[in-house]
Design a protein around this nucleic acid. Structure first.
Lengths: 103, 103
DNA sequence: AACCTATATAAGGAAATAATTATATTATGA
DNA sequence: TCATAATATAATTATTTCCTTATATAGGTT
C-alpha cells in the first residue's frame, strides 16, 4: 500500500476526523491538556479551563460520547481521564507542534 | 513552566484549534493527505478525494484562508501544496495514530 | 428531613458549517 | 474570436455547534 493510500479507508478517516473534531475547540483542547497527566474531578477542570460549570459539563459530555475520555464516580465527585491512548499521543504531539515553549 | 501550563497560552490554543478545525473534516483531511507528498493541481485533488469540483474548491479555499495550504498558478491550473510545516507533521502523526496499516 | 456540594440535563436561540446548483473568471487552443 | 478546460464565487438551504439560563439529580452532612 503506497503512501497516497494511507488514511484512505473510510473508517480511518472517520475515526481520525471524529477525534480531531473533539479536539478542535479551545475549551475541549484545554480539558484534554488538563487531563494529560492526571485524572481530575469536573470542578478542577472547570477551574483550570475557566468557563461555566454547565458549559464544561457539556463539553466533557461531548468528549465522553466520542469515547475520548471516561469517568467514574468517587463519592460526591466524578473523576475524568483520557480513555483513548491515541488521543493522548495526539495531545502531546499537538503541544510539541504548537507550543511556543517548544519552538 | 510545568507541563500543566503547556498550551495554556491563548495564542497557542488558538493556533492549535485553528489547525485542528481545518483538519477536522473528512474531505479536508483527505486533501491534506493527498498533498502530504506532492504539490497537486485542483483537479487531481478532486479526483483523489472524490466530491464535486465546487465543493473541493471551497474546501481548498478554507484551507488557504486558514494559512494551511498555498497555491500558485501554472498556466491553466492552480497547484496547491501544504504551506505550514507544522501541519505536515500533524498529518503524518495522525496517520501514524489512526491508520489501521500502522496498528 | 433539610441543606449543601458536585454534576448533569433541557430548552432556547444565535452563529458557524456544509452541500448543492448555478454562474463567473481566467487561460489555452483552434 | 469562439470554444473549452480549470478554477472560483455566489446564493440558498439544511444541519450542526455553541453558549446561556434554568432546573434536575445524586451524594454527603448535620
Amino acid at each position: 500500500m503506497d503512501s497516497m493510500e494511507l488514511l484512505e479507508k473510510k473508517e480511518d478517516i472517520e475515526k481520525a476526523t471524529n477525534a480531531l473534531k473533539a479536539m478542535a475547540h479551545p475549551l475541549r483542547l484545554k480539558i484534554l491538556c488538563a487531563l494529560k497527566g492526571d485524572e481530575l474531578p469536573v470542578l478542577e477542570i472547570v477551574k483550570y479551563v475557566g468557563s461555566s460549570q454547565s458549559n464544561i459539563s457539556q463539553h466533557i459530555d461531548i468528549l465522553r460520547t466520542k469515547n475520548i475520555i471516561e469517568s467514574r464516580r468517587e463519592g460526591n465527585r466524578i473523576l475524568c481521564r483520557v480513555k483513548d491512548a491515541k488521543i493522548l499521543k495526539l495531545v502531546v504531539n499537538i503541544q510539541a507542534v504548537f507550543c511556543s515553549e517548544y519552538n
